[in-house]
Amino acid sequence: MAKEKTKEFVVPKSNRIKIAKATIGFNIVGYFFITLIALICLLPFIMIISGSFSKESLIVTQGYSLLPRGLSVSAYETIFKNPMIILNSYGVTILITVVGTVLGLFITAMTGYVLCRQDFRYRNVLSFYFYFTTLFSGGMVSSYIFMIQVLNLKDSLLALILPFMVNVFYLLIMRSFMASVPVSIIESAKIDGAGEFRIFIQLVLPLAKAGLATIGLFIALEYWNDWYNAMLYINSSEKYPLQYRLYNMISSQAAMAQLSQVSTVNVENMPTQTLKLAMACVATGPIILVYPFVQKFFVKGITIGSVKG
């Protein structure tokens, strides 16, 4: 290393061109691969969207492709002809997302605030109490049995809401966000005689808006994308959240037939293949639509989590 440096000190004149050459080389390699990676990230989405707009008959004979085969909206028509099943699942997903996110965010904010209060003597003990659960867990079997037998939540929407309510990782990020609220404000409010709850609601929460938005979005995304808890705990079809409904349709012909009966389409005429992809689009659509607006919050949350978590 030292040798290289002295060598370059000796020949400073040719440096300018050398720097430029290396940078060009780096740019060619870098831009090429980064574009390739970006394309690979994007292609599956394009395949699904174009598949969902394809003609079923062409898919059956020729298979999927990158561009739509023919152009048809019959898959979407089938879904929306009798939209009760989809709307029902949307309802369940929106319900658990809203309730879970609001409650979870409030609990996370309160706890994060308590954990960052320097004058709270047991903050480190409590932090470890939460952190320990990421190191050691009871595992899938005992969680399942506890949920079913002790809490008695089989086939209850609570079984979908409770598991994501407190996430230790988000709790620790929230603690970092809360730590940026100036202590002097809290102290002066105390001197003015404000109670702890009032300080939290009226002073701390408004100052921690960025943190609340970030963690709220993280929690909401988890609820929106959940299918696993539904698979474990939910039996009755009218309580299926969106992602699990989608999974069910993709994996089982029976679920497809159910949809066709409801929407009075003949099973033979039903666009099975394109329908699967159209369902995927309908289930993911909202996320893709809000993605450009919320992306920066996620970047911020991950950044803070990586620096201090």
Partner: peptide, 15 residues
């Protein structure tokens, strides 16, 4: 674009 896959559920990946 590269961040996008993080936002979709594994069900979609299954698709």
């Amino acid at each position: 674009v590269i961040f996008l896959p993080y936002f979709i559920s594994w069900v979609i990946v299954g698709t």
